[in-house]
């Protein structure tokens, strides 16, 4: 008379298998890094050319049918706005998919930096989304499907550039709002996004990402004094479709100077890799513990009964 019957063991195994099945397919994600679609498009932003005219903001607002801003797009006083005790400049949100900020490194001439979604090759928002609301299109845009979004805002937590905004003020249809590279209205048809189209300074260059990398390095080589020798976004966080050239170190114009070259998804691969192992090993291991515990209990009871000379033994 054993402590655990074959039936109970089988029941435990079946439960374990059921848990495995219920847990859904987990991608092992051990494949090498994805470096972008071969014909993915991108934009090269040259900070030396930007004059802070904010016409890209205005164009974006019109193209995406966003609400009219509090201050007109001609108003340069927005560059003086800071938030949270001066610790933060303007950032994209539900009402503005792109913003331009002014920086004055070392009191020299001001530099302007356009901020929008960088359209990562391996987007953190996409990999953190549990309903697969995000898609990296073959044209290079990271687009969002509001029809499946539950509103957990994990993408806002995950985005290393602080880009997505959430329409918190909406009670019945709150969604994530972010730059989608004008995918529906322009990019799909091979057209540059509205902001690039309108830029009077050619600070924004639209093209295939692969070509833009070459152009970026050419500019650095041709004008070694004008740029720091770095094309931001070429490798950062797995590479982004939007890349930047700057005359000063990138941390002086509000970039995270060292985000690493690993895409965000690599941080969770270790954990996701352990999932199937736990699912497979735990049932046998803990059922084994149970058998050991039962055996010991059983033996102990037997000993006790032997001492008591022939009273009924066993633990069941």
């Amino acid at each position: 008379m054993s402590g655990i019957s074959r039936r109970r063991f089988l029941a435990a195994s079946v439960a374990g298998c059921a848990a495995t099945t219920l847990a859904g397919p987990k991608k092992a994600l051990a494949a090498g890094s994805f470096t972008g679609y071969p014909d993915g498009m991108g934009v090269l932003v040259d900070l030396t050319r930007c004059i802070g005219c904010r016409s890209c903001e205005a164009a974006c607002n019109k193209e995406q049918n966003l609400p009219a801003p509090d201050k007109s797009f001609d108003d340069k006083s927005v560059f003086d706005e800071t938030f949270h005790g001066g610790k933060q400049k303007r950032r994209p949100d539900e009402n503005a998919y792109t913003v331009v900020n002014r920086y004055n490194p070392d009191g020299s001439d001001p530099l302007y930096r356009k901020v929008q979604c960088n359209h990562c090759n391996e987007p953190a928002c996409l990999s953190s989304c549990f309903v697969n609301a995000y898609t990296k299109t073959k044209e290079g845009a990271v687009v969002y499907n509001p029809n499946v979004c539950v509103g957990c805002r994990n993408c806002l937590v995950a985005c290393p550039f602080g880009i997505p905004g959430y329409s918190y003020s909406s009670a019945f249809d709150p969604v994530v709002k972010k730059c989608i590279f004008c995918h529906e209205t322009r990019l799909k048809n091979g057209l540059p996004p509205a902001c690039v189209d309108v830029c009077p300074q050619e600070a924004l260059t639209f093209g295939k990402r692969k070509e833009l990398i070459k152009i970026g390095h050419q500019r650095i080589q041709t004008h070694p004094g004008r740029y720091v020798n770095h094309l931001y976004g070429e490798n950062e966080l797995g590479g982004t479709s939007w890349m930047y050239l700057s005359p000063v170190n990138f941390d002086e114009v509000g970039f995270d100077p060292n985000p690493g070259n690993e895409p965000i998804i690599n941080n969770v691969k270790d954990f996701l890799g352990t999932v199937p192992m736990v699912l497979a090993i735990w049932p046998a291991m803990f059922t084994g513990f149970h058998l050991l515990a039962k055996k010991r209990e059983h033996d102990k009871n037997n000993q006790d009964t032997e001492k008591q000379h022939g009273e009924e033994g066993g633990d069941q």
């Binding site: 953190s128 549990f130 697969n132 609301a133 499946v148 994990n154």
Partner: peptide
């Protein structure tokens, strides 16, 4: 939704 409508199985939150 993550159970019946749209699956993001590579996300930790899905788990």
């Amino acid at each position: 939704y993550p159970m019946v409508v749209s699956f993001g199985p590579a996300a930790v939150l899905f788990l």
